[in-house]
Amino acid sequence: PKDEAKKKVKEAIKRGDEETAKRIAKKYNLDWDDAKREADEER
């Protein structure tokens, strides 16, 4: 599900692992900028 994928993307971003985050986002066709902004807001 997309929500689960987005959570994984945000967790990867918070760990500083943007490569993984981008790969997950691409795989699930998520909006990378959107997920990154959300992760930054939660930090």
Rank of each mutant, 00 (worst) to 15 (best):
D34E: 15
K36D: 03
K36A: 07
E41W: 10
K26L: 13
E18C: 15
K36M: 12
E18F: 15
I13N: 01
D34C: 11
R37P: 03
W32T: 01
E41Q: 12
A35R: 02
E41L: 13
D33S: 07
Y28L: 02
N29P: 02
A21H: 01
K27Q: 14
E19G: 06
K22S: 03
D31T: 04
E11F: 03
K7T: 10
K36V: 14
E11M: 11
V9E: 00
W32F: 14
A39R: 03
K10D: 04
I13Y: 11
R37A: 11
E4S: 09
D17T: 01
R15H: 06
E38H: 04
D31M: 03
K26A: 14
E42A: 08
K14W: 15
D33M: 10
A12P: 00
Y28E: 07
V9K: 00
D31Y: 02
K14V: 07
K10I: 15
L30S: 00
G16M: 03
A35L: 15
G16R: 03
A35F: 14
D31S: 10
E38M: 07
W32A: 02
R15W: 05
W32Q: 01
K6M: 15
K26Q: 12
D40C: 12
D17F: 05
K22P: 00
R43S: 13
E4L: 14
T20K: 06
D33H: 07
D40M: 12
P1W: 15
G16D: 03
D17C: 12
D3Y: 12
T20W: 10
I24L: 14
K8I: 11
I24N: 00
R43Y: 12
A35V: 15
E19I: 10
E38W: 08
D33R: 04
E19T: 10
R43Q: 14
R43D: 12
T20L: 15
G16C: 11
D33I: 09
D40E: 13
A35S: 06
A21D: 00
A12S: 04
K2Y: 14
A12G: 01
E4N: 09
D31N: 12
E11R: 07
K36P: 03
P1D: 15
K27W: 11
K10H: 09
K6H: 07
K36S: 06
K8H: 09
D33G: 06
I13K: 01
K8W: 15
K36G: 03
A5L: 08
K6T: 06
K10Y: 14
E18V: 14
D34P: 02
K26R: 12
D40T: 10
A21K: 00
A5Q: 06
T20D: 08
D17Y: 05
P1C: 15
K7Y: 12
E4Y: 15
R23D: 09
D33P: 05
D33E: 14
E42H: 06
E41I: 11
E11G: 03
R43H: 10
W32I: 07
D31E: 06
A25G: 00
K8L: 15
E19C: 11
E42C: 12
